[in-house]
Amino acid sequence: MEVTITIDGKQIKARKGTMLLWAALDNGIYIPHLCAAREETESPPASCRLCFVEVEGYPAPVTACTLPVAEGMVVNTSSERVNRLVAAGFELIMSNHRLDCKNCPANGNCELQRIAKARKLRLKPKNLPVLHRDLPVDDSAENIVYDPSKCVLCGRCIRACRNHGQSVVGFARRGFERVVTTCGDVPLGESGCDSCGECVKACPVGAMSLKKK
């Protein structure tokens, strides 16, 4: 069944029950997002906290990846309140991302750059100091380089690896120490990784990249 909703004044049709984020993206309306995945319909991770929108009738901004569309829904993707919240979330992420666009393989094809451009945000955090974690680059795999200091913990590589039938990488540790790593923290080269490159395709920020040949 189709429903009609209004996003930023534009009427669009979407299948009932689709999460608002996908309905918007499918109709050419960009909402910043890092962790969302279409296949996770049951329980979206909702962890990057960037896809906030304001929906009429809701007292506070909601994440678009967790909100199923309903008939007559009226959405504002960039109210002042949303913009401030997204800017704060983005600045937090950027305070924990090793910024090196010039030498980054994702340069020009980076979701963070895209968000910054779409929302007119700075890549370099303005108010917050950069939180360094000093995690070493792992280039032990045949074809893949993993730089955890660039990782934004979106979990896309974990899903891609699992879909490839491997599940070599996963989340480990808690809090600020949370990291994408292999079972037992062994280097990728010793983890059974077959260098298929699915994680590289999935990574939105260049934390996983192909080796330069």
């Binding site: 991770p45 937090l92 992420i93 809090g175 949370r178």
Partner: peptide, 21 residues
Amino acid sequence: TQKESCGKCTFCRLGTKHMLD
């Protein structure tokens, strides 16, 4: 709370860390 944060979401993981610093 910063030590007990699970680290899943951006605001809690990084926000509480900045506040603590």
